[in-house]
């Protein structure tokens, strides 16, 4: 069970950020070859990311690369580079249907075979940025064994919906649809970026909302947001205490070969045990909420 609360976006053309971002310790680092890279720098950014992925400093952190869409002149070259460089996850932008994922998956498999990488070891995630993507969210989420998550991308989506970013009402249906699809598929769900890096209050409010909805985490554009997000996702001391007792009870039941887990005389189901494990994982990653 991989913790994915924070996914930090890094512009693929920026050598300084690529060289230092690992120090911020987000759960995942996403090198962007798409919107953050000007047309002039597509080739150079691809090479930078290709080499950054092979740098030992990224060995212990999950790496994601947002490639250009496959229908652009850059998408396939991006994929060739990052699969060979050992990226953990390829993020496909502008995913409208399961067919987009299937097309990507076929190319990934071809490259894995060509370079001798274990087939299936490159994981995928899809960014949903349109009304069709939202409507097809479930089929996208379940389109491949390689899928580890789906992410909502707000900027293009609100334009497609003929609206604009506001208090979140405009994203309400999309967030719910993406989240449900992810849960049905058993994969992670990521919320949109919060682009005003100076508005800490607004960021935390949005984090509170998406945490309540059930998102695993959020895409971030500023390292300063990582700690805020991790803290907001951190359990309270009571949560941790309770989770310890749940897990202890479950372990005891398993040791004793009991089919039923009980705590304080009440029966506890598997989802509660799983939830408790996630609470402890978060507490271990960034302590209790401050």
């Amino acid at each position: 069970m991989k913790l994915r609360r924070s996914m930090l976006f890094l512009p693929g053309a920026n050598a300084a950020m690529l060289s230092t971002a690992f120090v911020f310790k987000p759960d995942s680092i996403m090198f962007d070859l798409e919107d953050a890279v000007s047309l002039r720098e597509k080739d150079a950014a691809r090479l930078l990311v290709f080499h950054a992925l092979q740098n030992p400093v990224y060995r212990d952190i999950e790496t994601v690369v947002r490639i250009n869409p496959l229908n652009t002149p850059f998408g396939l070259a991006d994929l060739e580079a990052v699969v060979r460089a050992g990226v953990d996850i390829v993020r496909l932008p502008k995913t409208d249907s399961a067919a987009d994922v299937h097309e990507l998956e076929a190319e990934v498999e071809r490259i894995e075979k060509a370079c001798g990488r274990e087939v299936g070891s490159t994981k995928l995630m899809a960014a949903i940025e349109s009304a069709s993507g939202v409507v097809n969210a479930l089929s996208i989420a379940t389109s491949s064994q390689r899928m580890i998550g789906i992410a909502l991308a707000g900027f293009d989506y609100v334009m497609d919906m003929q609206t604009e970013r506001g208090d979140g009402t405009e994203l309400f249906y999309a967030r719910c649809a993406v989240l449900h699809a992810a849960r049905v598929a058993g994969i992670d769900a990521f919320d949109v970026v919060y682009s005003d890096v100076n508005d800490e209050e607004g960021f935390l409010k949005e984090v509170e909302l998406i945490k309540k909805l059930g998102f695993n985490g959020k895409s971030l554009i500023n390292p300063r947001q990582i700690e805020l997000l991790h803290n907001a996702y951190a359990p309270t001391e009571e949560d941790v205490d309770y989770a310890h007792r749940v897990v202890a009870a479950a372990e005891k039941a398993e040791r004793e070969g009991l089919g039923v887990v009980a705590l304080n005389g009440k029966m506890i189901d598997a989802p509660i045990v799983n939830h408790a494990k996630r609470v402890l994982q978060k507490a271990q990653a960034s302590g209790v909420r401050k």
């Binding site: 690529l18 060289s19 580079a81 060979r84």
Partner: peptide, 27 residues
Amino acid sequence: DCAIRARVQAAILRGAAVDQLDWSKLS
């Protein structure tokens, strides 16, 4: 070092007008 490799390769490939890359030779 990784940035040095990437930048040197990018400049050479641009200056040599190469756009079909053999990625296995660039690691």
